[in-house]
């Protein structure tokens, strides 16, 4: 990715997430409380750090964006009100808003269904993983 492209993307991430990464005091409570920590290559505190440093490409290629549970524990417990969950969602959007980058495709769905699965799960997965 070009330098100016990444700068622009960083500005977009900050704008649509509404998060100011400079508020972070690097305590690591977000990563301490994250229930999906082990499934992430970049962890919540690194999302804040790397957005601050403008290194968005690493985050866009990370598997963390697909494994965030949107449980808002990081956002609720952050002592500085940084709201890492919003950054993760903004990076995920930056990926799926690109053409052909949908993470979940309709044809995958039938195999994933079981009798009791509420459609809430399907609707939310499409909202989160596809455009």
């Amino acid at each position: 990715m070009q330098k100016n492209q990444e700068l622009e993307l960083t500005a977009t991430i900050k704008r649509i997430s509404g998060v100011n990464p400079r508020l972070c005091m690097k305590c690591g409570k977000c990563s301490a409380t994250c229930p999906a920590f082990d499934e992430m290559d970049y962890h919540p505190h690194q999302f804040v750090d790397l957005v601050d440093k403008g290194q968005i490409e690493k985050l866009m290629n990370s598997k963390g964006i697909w494994n965030c549970l949107s449980c808002f524990a990081c956002l609720e417990r952050c002592p500085r009100m940084v709201e890492p969950a919003k950054l993760i969602e903004a990076v995920r959007l930056a990926v799926i808003r690109q053409q052909g980058q949908n993470h979940l495709k309709p044809e995958q769905i039938p195999d994933l269904l079981d009798e009791n699965l509420p459609q809430q799960a399907i609707t939310s997965a499409f909202r989160k993983y596809a455009k």
Binding site: P35, A36, E39, W66, N67, L69, S70, C71, A73, L104, L112, L117, A121, I122, S124, A125, K128, Y129
Partner: peptide, 12 residues
């Protein structure tokens, strides 16, 4: 008040 992981059931 901890997440049960419900949203991720299709993905992981």
């Amino acid at each position: 008040n901890e997440c049960c992981g419900g949203y991720i059931t299709l993905e992981n």
